[in-house]
């Protein structure tokens, strides 16, 4: 498990260094994700060493958003009197975006014959 965490941290660190060093507008961990993916494609032997830990972390991904979520309560006053309008915008937009995405996916999957079923 320690080895697995070290591997994940090394890729994150590499991502941070690349993002900062090259001035890229992409977060370091996202670059680390891309590098980790490339490493798995090139060296599948890496997979069993890290997989169990990665799966455990992802199973509890919700937990990791709790500290930032609590920050919302601390900053509720930034909402001010525009709160209801902003909340309405978020609900409508998130619903619309999910529907637009899922139907676009299905439409093109059917057209290109990429159906799973």
């Amino acid at each position: 498990m320690i080895r697995a965490v070290a591997v994940l941290l090394l890729f994150q660190l590499g991502g941070e260094v690349a993002a900062r060093g090259l001035g890229l507008p992409i977060p370091g961990p996202v670059l680390g994700l891309a590098a980790m993916f490339a490493a798995l494609v090139l060296r599948p032997a890496l997979r069993p060493q890290v997989e169990a830990t990665a799966t455990t972390i992802l199973k509890h991904l919700s937990l990791l958003f709790v500290p930032a979520g609590v920050g919302v309560i601390a900053h509720l006053d930034t909402f001010g009197r525009e709160g209801p309008a902003l909340l309405a915008a978020l609900v409508v937009s998130t619903t619309a975006s999910i529907l637009a995405g899922v139907y676009a996916f299905r439409l093109v999957a059917r057209l290109t014959g990429a159906d799973d079923a």
């Binding site: 890729f11 993916f37 992802l58 990791l64």
Partner: peptide, 21 residues
């Protein structure tokens, strides 16, 4: 106190490479 949990978001993002692969 909570920052230790928050910190794990970084490694978790890297871990997304596994289900992708």
């Amino acid at each position: 106190g909570a920052q230790f949990v928050h910190f794990m978001l970084g490694p978790a993002t890297v871990a997304l490479a596994f289900p992708l692969h």
